[in-house]
């Protein structure tokens, strides 16, 4: 699974790089606009080790942020699965928070939490949790009549049982959504580092942008792709294990 995913990523990345170089040579652009292959290779060699550590720094924040987002999305999803007043209030609050652009909220977060780890984590969670929440609410508010009917008619239904039944019956959807939202967690962390941190690969990209250094950005994108592929593969593996256990 890992082998195939990495292979696919290499294919996509190098096709993209090739198209970029093709544009460079077709339009006769200077190395300032699009760097040449030699410059990309040399930059890659000089920043590779540093960027690997930066990507690892970003990835661990993304993983923690993703876990928090999953917990948060399930908590809000469970509370908001009913079409009751409290359910709609929770949904409205969640939607409103998501509607605020993160760059506008960032100064408030700095004042309250400074510009360290917690800020990066919080921004990553804010960006990642919403798509998860929408899917979780969708799944948990959809009744599984064929099973739930029995427990309702025998008056043994409670909220825990209802959530379990709906989650179990939609385990495939849930694992796909969770694996998919991992990308959002990585993107969220990079945005957080871009606007509110002095560490991680997002911060390195920001510095490279100031220097108009596309070679560094291309190296960073390559490593982000590898890191995200590894994380997604790990998640899919965990998802498969859970699904197999559920089937037993």
């Amino acid at each position: 699974m890992l082998h195939r995913r990495i292979q696919q990523f290499f294919l996509v990345y190098f096709l993209g790089l090739l198209s970029l170089l093709l544009v460079k040579y077709l339009l006769n652009l200077s190395d300032y606009v699009i760097p040449g292959p030699v410059e990309i290779w040399q930059t890659c060699k000089s920043v590779f080790a540093r960027y690997v550590f930066n990507v690892l720094d970003t990835l661990w924040i993304a993983v923690v942020g993703h876990i928090i987002s999953i917990i948060l999305a399930f908590m809000v999803g469970i509370l908001g699965r009913h079409n009751s007043w409290i359910g709609s209030l929770i949904k409205a609050t969640a939607y409103s928070i998501q509607a605020y652009p993160i760059v506008a909220v960032a100064p408030i977060i700095f004042i309250l939490l400074g510009d360290g780890l917690i800020t990066r984590l919080l921004i990553a969670v804010m960006i990642c949790y919403f798509p998860l929440l929408l899917s979780v609410i969708g799944i948990l508010s959809e009744p599984v009549d064929s099973i739930e009917h029995f427990y309702v008619s025998t008056k043994r239904m409670n909220w825990r049982l209802q959530v379990r039944i709906r989650a179990y019956e939609n385990i495939n959807k849930l694992t796909t959504v969770i694996a998919g939202s991992a990308t959002m967690a990585v993107v969220g962390t990079i945005i957080a580092e871009f606007i509110a941190a002095d560490a991680g690969i997002g911060y390195s990209i920001r510095t490279a942008l100031y220097q108009s250094d596309l070679s560094k950005i291309l190296t960073a994108l390559f490593l982000i792709g590898i890191g995200t592929s590894l994380y997604l593969t790990g998640l899919e593996w965990v998802g498969n294990v859970i699904q197999r256990k559920c089937q037993i």
Binding site: S30, D31, Y32, V33, P35, Q211, S212
Partner: peptide
């Protein structure tokens, strides 16, 4: 600095 960096990389 942008100009100097660009010219150093061959920007005409």
């Amino acid at each position: 600095d942008q100009v100097i960096r660009a010219v150093a990389k061959g920007s005409p």
